[in-house]
């Protein structure tokens, strides 16, 4: 790619660079949260929660930063490169639409298969999933013994 003079100042480039660095760092931070949730959470449903939310947001942030970088190096001499920016943003919007959809479909499949959510006896002052009669019926799953007391 031949460097041509585009009439954009050094200040604009610095602002764009700092903005995309901040976006990528935020995306990596959210992905770290998703990874910690996927590895450490005790339950299928809670792991799904971490994967669905953190992964989607970090993907959108990083693709936004990359679209910003590519759009900054765009000039009208090579005007077809605008489609690259459009496609990068299309990836972000596509993942924004499809990742919750697939998370919902997989969670529905797991619920229909009878994966039971984690339940734990209520400690003092801590709200718990098994609040007496308020337990949601899980098809095909056995309640743990603590819930019957």
């Amino acid at each position: 790619m031949v460097p041509v003079h585009r009439g954009k100042g050094k200040l604009t480039e610095m602002v764009i660079d700092i903005l995309s660095i901040l976006l990528i760092l935020a995306g990596l931070l959210f992905f770290l949260g998703a990874v910690v949730g996927i590895v450490r959470f005790p339950d299928f449903y809670t792991r799904m929660h971490a994967a669905g939310k953190g992964d989607t947001l970090s993907t959108m942030l990083i693709t936004g930063a990359m679209a910003l970088q590519v759009f900054h190096h765009f000039d009208w001499a090579h005007w077809t490169e605008i489609f690259v920016v459009v496609k990068i943003m299309a990836i972000g919007i596509l993942i924004m639409l499809t990742s919750p959809t697939s998370t919902h479909a997989l969670m529905q499949a797991g619920y229909d298969d009878g994966i039971e959510p984690v339940t734990r006896p209520a400690k003092k002052g801590i709200a718990s999933l098994d609040g007496g009669d308020e337990l949601l019926p899980v098809p095909g799953a056995e309640m743990p013994e603590e819930a019957e007391e």
Partner: peptide, 20 residues
């Protein structure tokens, strides 16, 4: 389904890594 969710996360991040 845990495995499928993890594969889904890795696939999404691979798409991002390809842009980088």
């Amino acid at each position: 389904i845990d495995r499928i969710v993890a594969v889904n996360v890795i696939g999404t991040k691979t798409a991002v890594l390809l842009i980088i």
